[in-house]
Design a protein around this nucleic acid. Structure first.
Lengths: 358, 358
DNA sequence: AAATTTCTGATTTACGTACATCAGAAATTC
DNA sequence: GAATTTCTGATGTACGTAAATCAGAAATTT
């Protein structure tokens, strides 16, 4: 049987009340007594039964999650995981309220943050847009003493407590390494497709990608699809027509739908290596159809759960092991695809799988 | 506030005792009343507070884990994760006893299983050896009504409740796909290194590997290092000397230490593609030193936690979502390596990192 | 030494559920 | 209609901790 507070009291020769005062750092205990109690705790190896403690405290953690709207599959998968955490019979006493804001709208995110502050949650998680007014709002959140975690997309390290997302520079490097090996030994031309270079994640990925390739390949100027499927498809079709020798394409974030459509319509052999980001129904289908060679992914479920863990720890004033909360960069080929219901929102979308943004 | 048993009682117009009888399927409730209570439960959306329930029951789950001894890094990492789960202030009321048996010794595993049975644990997890007497012992475990999970290495599906490990055929296919792309377009010779073809996991991986390559490459006869580092090193050195044109090496399990040593000593350019299994201090160092191109990995921590979740569910008679418990096949390049303390036992071993079995 | 302040003990209630007991009501059987 | 049997209610204790109250002891100050 595990030792309880009663055992501590007996061991230290004090009363339950004193043990409680020591355990919960309440005042009213002489230093000498406190030491005795702490020694007893160490001696019998007491560990607080958190389940019982939380029950007694009937503590709840009201968290606010702020996510972008839009038909981006990855974000919808993220939302699904948040909703799953909401639905989970609050075994962990977490109560999440979910706020959906217009995508790419810094002002909207800032407003959502300010609105959240007045509700005084125990913590906030936000898919940040890297804009000055968001930074200001983030600072207000911190000034209000509310732990703040950025999700997927980061802000500066000084205006949040933690970032639950991948190291995008490393992701870019990984893509670069794969690309280098996939296209073969000879020098080759590589195209890069982005939604917009205004997003920090995408800039980081591109930097990492270039660094990994150094100058062993010719990286063509970045194509910016602006998150418009039709425009993206035209860009890629153009590229394939004009640059028949292009050996690889790296899609570093948005616009997978247009990319896949263009590859599908293309009648000559596609570039040897096509690498994209985020496992969604579309990229999954494209992998299975051999239109894409590899997909780099960040596990949205992990990110959500990590964000919750970190917020809880911050709320309780417990230190977090940053290294333990780091999100891995998954690499998927068609051969090691996880099962659909195991991954991100893959079973939620209607069929006609290759379609829909990103 | 979440509804409680009291709310059910009020809603259904019955007493707490009756609610309790319904909730815990105890006899003594008229069918009509039971229906009323169940309707009330559904109506107010009651979900049992498992923390409180377990507290009241002071239920514990005594589990037995059976692991092989030996200096295999992966297994030691696995052990570390089991010990971590043991140490975890039993928030989940799991009490694990760990049994270490001699490696590759079916009889020893069988004996350990039989010994475990008499202790009547709530579940057993075992790194199985695919031998007839182990199968027999497994059947005895199941006959005793004890849930059984195989860990890492499977037995037939009929003699365990669940397998917490990767799909090794898929892992082999993944390695094959990567190999295919890494060696380039032209036909090439590929070597395969195994510890011993007697282990089921390794046979599966080889099958998958061959299937993925089909006949686009020449897969040389399998080299069997018999888990002996020195012998393995000689085998690989021989291979490199005799087959200077070999384009890739696939190490499908054991013997990474000898492989790495041979590559390190080799004075000419190494084969273009070297792919190994299991992220350990040695393979990690080799990745970083560019002696290996990719490492396929199964997350030992995930496997242990999944095994515990499944055992608990089986013990409680709750169904498990098999797809949710599937272990992913991780691909690591030097660029997306997780941090050391995040992975498997990487920080536990002494330095002089490239050394030690596997 | 008296007055004050600071500690400590004893006790109680609570959290949400499990489980046991006993009495009494309701339904069933004879 | 009496004797069962089956159901239900009321009540209490327990799990391990939190938190509050109040009384009294000990230490400190005047």
């Amino acid at each position: 049987m595990r030792p309880t507070v009663h055992d501590i009291a007996a061991e230290a020769g004090v009363s339950l009340a004193t043990v409680d005062r020591v355990l919960n750092r309440r005042p009213g205990v002489k230093a000498a007594t406190r030491v005795r109690v702490e020694a007893a705790i160490a001696a019998i190896g007491f560990v607080r039964d958190m389940a019982a403690a939380n029950l007694a405290k009937s503590r709840v953690y009201p968290f606010t999650f702020i996510l972008p709207a839009g038909d981006n599959s990855f974000m919808r998968g993220l939302e699904r995981h948040v909703r799953e955490a909401m639905a989970r019979p609050a075994a962990d006493r977490v109560e999440i309220s979910l706020v959906i804001v217009p995508p790419f709208d810094g002002a909207a995110v800032a407003r959502a943050l300010d609105a959240a502050i007045v509700r005084e949650p125990a913590g906030i998680a936000v898919v940040a847009v890297d804009a000055p007014d968001v930074v200001d709002a983030a600072l207000r959140v911190q000034a209000a003493g509310i732990p703040l975690v950025t999700l997927v997309s980061d802000l500066g390290p000084s205006c949040r407590d933690h970032f639950a997302g991948i190291d995008n520079h490393a992701a870019g490097r990984t893509a670069g390494s794969l690309m280098r090996r996939f296209v073969g030994r000879e020098r080759a031309a590589i195209a890069v497709l982005a939604g917009s270079m205004l997003v920090r994640d995408h800039r980081d990925r591109l930097d990492g990608f270039r660094a990994a390739l150094s100058d062993t390949c010719d990286v063509l100027p970045v194509l910016e699809g602006q998150d418009d499927p039709a425009a993206t498809e035209r860009l890629i079709a153009d590229l394939l027509a004009r640059h028949p020798d292009v050996a690889g394409i790296y899609s570093l974030g948005a616009g997978n739908r247009g990319l896949i459509a263009a590859l599908q319509r293309h009648d000559r052999p596609r570039p040897r290596a096509v690498i994209a980001h985020e496992l969604t129904p579309h990229t999954r289908a494209a992998l299975e159809a051999d239109l894409i060679d590899a997909v780099l992914n960040q596990d949205a479920g992990h990110e959500v759960r990590s964000a919750i863990r970190v917020l809880k720890a911050k709320a309780d004033g417990i230190p977090t092991v940053e290294a333990q909360e780091r999100i891995r960069i998954d690499i998927f080929l068609k051969d090691n695809l996880p099962f659909a219901d195991d991954a991100d929102g893959l079973s939620l979308l209607p069929s006609g799988v290759v379609g829909g943004a990103n």
